[in-house]
Design a protein around this nucleic acid. Sequence first.
RNA 1: GGGCCAUUAGCUAAACCCGGCAGAGCAGCGGACUCUUAAUCCGAAGGUUACAGGUUCCAUUCCUGUAUGGCCUACCA
Length: 490
Amino acid sequence: MPHTEDLSDLLKQRLKKLQVLQKKGKTTFAYSFKDKQDIGSVTSKYFKLEASQEGEKAKIGGRIVAFRQHGKATFADVADSSGKIQLYFAADVLGKRYEELSELDIGDIAGFEGLVFKTRRGELSLKVEKYQLLTKSLRPLPEKWHGLKDVETRFRQRYLDLIANPRAREIFSIREKALRTIRNFLNDKGFAEVDTPILQPLYGGATARPFVTHHNALDRDLYLRIAPELYLKRLLIGNMEKVFELGRNFRNEGLSIKHNPEFTMLEVYQAYADYNDMMDLTEKLIKEMVNVASGSLKITYQDKEIDFSKFEKISMIESIEKLGKVKVSFDMNVAELKKIAKNNEIKLQDFWGKGHIINAIFEKLVEPQLIQPTFVTDFPVEVSPLARTNQKDENLAERFELIVFAREVANAFSELTNPIEQRKRFEEQIKTEARDEVPQVIDEDFIKALEYGMPPAGGLGVGIDRLLMILTDSYSIKEVILFPHLRTFE
RNA sequence: GGGCCAUUAGCUAAACCCGGCAGAGCAGCGGACUCUUAAUCCGAAGGUUACAGGUUCCAUUCCUGUAUGGCCUACCA
C-alpha cells in the first residue's frame, strides 16, 4: 500500500472505502469474470431495437466511466475494449443491492448481468439485475468532458490517455491494423517473417550511433541493432528467397518530432528482383495500408490533402533541376558543386565528394517540396554503400526513396551482391565517415557470406512510425508510439 | 548541445502584461430526485501556484537558478 502522508484526499477516501468493503468480505480484486460478452457485439446486435423495446439477457464487464444518479434510478456508462454501453440500475429491480451501489465508483472495473433494452430516449442500455465489483480503482480518472490534455501525462501514463481520449485509442487501433495489413500482404505474396538479432556484435546497415550494452558471461560489448539489413541479406545467401522483418531499430541520436531512439522498421528482401520490383511492391503495400487505415486513398495530413492513388516518379538529378531550379551533374567538378551548395546555404563536410554534395542539394532544395507520394530514383552511389551501381551510370545507384510530405517513408535498392565491391565500399565509407565516438569496423562475416554468393535481390525498408504519422494525421512521432521515450526521473 | 515557451486542486483551467485575501467547472464528499446521458438542484470541502533562491512592506505575478515537458534548431540515409 502506498504511503499515506503524501496521498491526495481522493486516494485516502478510496483506500478507506476499499478497507470497508474488504471487512464486509466483498471481492475487491476478483480472480476472473467468465463468459463476458464484448460490449461492441452487444451494441451491434441490438442497435436496431426500437425505443422502450427489450432484447435478451447479456453479461458484460468493463470500466465504469460515468454515473448519473436520480434517486431510485441510476445510470452509468461502462466501457471495454470493444465499445461503451449505458447501464440502468433501478431500485425496484435491484432491491437491497441498489442501496449498496455506492460500492462502485467511476474508474472501477465491474461485471454486469441483465436485460438489454432501449430507453424511452432510444439509448441502448443494460437493465442491471446483478453486478459485481471486479477491481477497485484507487485513483481518480481524468476529467470526463475535456479528457486528458497534459502532454507529459498522456505519454508517461499512456493508459490514462487510452482511457480518457478516444483519439488515442483510434490511433493505436490504426497502428494495429496497419501492422496486420503488412503481415497479411507479405504473407500472401510468399514472404516469410523472420527474427534476426537485436543484440549484434557489430552494427551496420545504416549510419547512426548505436546503443552499446554488455554481455556479462561472454564479457564483451554488444550493440542494439541500428538496422537488420546485413542479417536479412545473410538469409538470402542461405536460400531464403523472400523474407521480411518487422521490428525495432535503435539509434543513439537526438529526439525530435520525427525521431524516437527506438522505432519500428519493415525490411523486405526478395531474391531475383531489383529496385523496380521493390517500387511496385512498395506502391501496392502503401496503398493497401492507406486504404485500410482511412478507407480512402486520399487523406489529409496537417491540412494538406495527400493523394495516394498516384505515385510520382522522378530521378534525383532531374528533380533538382525541375524543382530545385539549379542544374547539377556528375560532369561538373567538385568546386562547381560546392559553389552551388554554398549559394544555397548548404553546410558541407570536408570529406564529401560529388555524390554527397548532390544529395545535400536535393535534401535542401527539393525534399521539402515533395508533398505528394513521390519515388525519387537514382541516388548517388556515394551515399548508397549497400546498393548496386546503376547499369547506365556508374555514379548512380539503383536506389529510390519514397517521399511523402517531405519525409522519407521508404528506401529501397537493388542490393549489391559483389563481395569485392562491397568491401571497397565499406573501406571507402570508413575512411571518409569515420566517427569519433564509436569505431566503424567492416563486418567481415558479412563479406564472407557474400563470397558464398548472394542472388540478385531487391531490398526495401519502410519507416513504420513515420508512415503512421501520416496515416493518423499526427504531428509528432510520440503520438503513434505507445510509450515514447521521455526522460525518467525519481 | 543552443534558443524560445510552459508548469496553478485528481483533471480542465482563470488571475500574471500593470505585484495587494488564488476565482471556477468536472470529479470527490453530504443532501433532494425512478428514463438520464457534459443529468439537474441545494450544501460543505479541496491550493506549499513545479522546486530553490532573490527583489519588495507585500510575489502565482518581477529577477536568477534547477527539474520536467513542448516547439524550433543541431546530430540522425
